[in-house]
Write a protein that binds this DNA or RNA. Structure first.
Length: 299
DNA sequence: GGCCAGGTGGCCA
DNA sequence: TGGCCACATGGC
């Protein structure tokens, strides 16, 4: 099979090792990691590509693409590069964030420990919503178990070099399932309803990542999303942070954020919401990155 | 055994 | 608006 190789230059404040470590900690069947690379299948307009990502000696990102569907064109090559730039959030300029963070009581420790980390995204909006809804209220290890069951019950299994990879279930399929069919994997009936509801909205193109990007106003985006049953302020901000990439998305109610602030600030208790608003006022415009680095302390 | 987990909607005053 | 409560399940 033909393999195409592309290079992407990396910003100085990007550490492949730190980002690989992060991905390793969140491996979910959709992609795989080893000591030096990340691999996954991606689908573009129904065409399948297998990509391998690693770093070269002169600090460039190398992307090898196997042309599984025999349909590789310059157009797909561009789309694959955009996919990678987006997944690793390569187009954001983080210098101003690091300047703020270096003198911030709560951020100086995490940015020193994880210097070079990026907000590794959740590429698909449906995947982002499902992951957020699964994570509501329950502990993260159980949420991971549910995600694993969700992917392996309803997703598509692919094999490459004898190893399993999964494609995330399509919103169309999930929208068509019965409550009992969804309930069997062990999530609450409410989570089943929320997930099926969002699957319908996405399948009908009533919600899309592009539309949310175009709004370009976090308050409007949150207002629109929280009108949907099952999407509260936390879920809306989580999806805007991890997928749509609003730099000022801020899931202020997040328990993990509270624990991380307690740890980073050596507090004897978790801070109150009012205290967090006070703390975060120094991060204006970079709340998403502040949150992502703080999460890395506790997850 | 009880409480807390990467919350949310529904009910009640 | 603000205060409860249920929700599925696992870990401590």
């Amino acid at each position: 099979m033909t393999v195409y190789k592309q290079l992407l230059s990396l910003p100085e404040n990007f550490s492949f090792r730190i980002n690989l470590d992060y991905l390793k900690s969140t491996e979910d069947g959709l992609f795989r990691t080893d000591q030096e690379s990340i691999t996954r299948f991606i689908v573009l307009d129904g065409n399948l590509f297998f990509i391998k990502i690693y770093v070269s000696n002169n600090n460039r990102l190398v992307i090898e693409t196997e042309d599984v569907s025999q349909s590789y064109t310059k157009q797909f090559e561009r789309q694959i590069m955009l996919y990678i730039r987006d997944w690793f959030d390569l187009d954001i300029h983080l210098e101003p964030f690091y300047i703020i963070a270096k003198q911030d009581e709560y951020l100086k420790m995490p940015i020193s420990k994880f210097y070079g980390l990026r907000n590794i995204g959740i590429p698909g909006i449906f995947e982002a919503f499902v992951w957020a809804i699964l994570g509501q209220q329950i502990n993260l290890s159980f949420a991971s178990t549910l995600k694993d069951r969700f992917i392996k019950n309803y997703g598509k299994r692919l094999i490459h070099n004898g190893e399993d990879y999964w494609l995330f279930p399509s919103p169309r399929l999930i929208a068509s399932l019965s409550m009992d069919e969804l309930f069997k994997i062990g999530m609450s009936r409410r989570k089943c309803e929320y997930i099926r509801g969002i699957a319908r909205l996405i399948a009908n193109n009533q919600i899309s990542r592009e539309k949310l990007v175009q709004l370009s106003d976090i308050n409007l985006a949150v207002k629109q999303l929280t009108a949907i049953k099952g999407i509260g302020p936390w879920t809306a901000n989580y999806v805007l942070l991890r997928c749509v990439r609003y730099p000022n998305a801020f899931p202020i109610n997040d328990v993990g954020l509270h624990n991380a602030l307690k740890l980073a600030g050596s507090l004897d208790r978790k801070p109150s919401i009012d205290e967090i608003k006070q703390i975060a006022s120094a991060w204006e415009g970079y709340e998403s990155y502040a949150t992502f680095f703080l999460w890395r302390l506790v997850y």
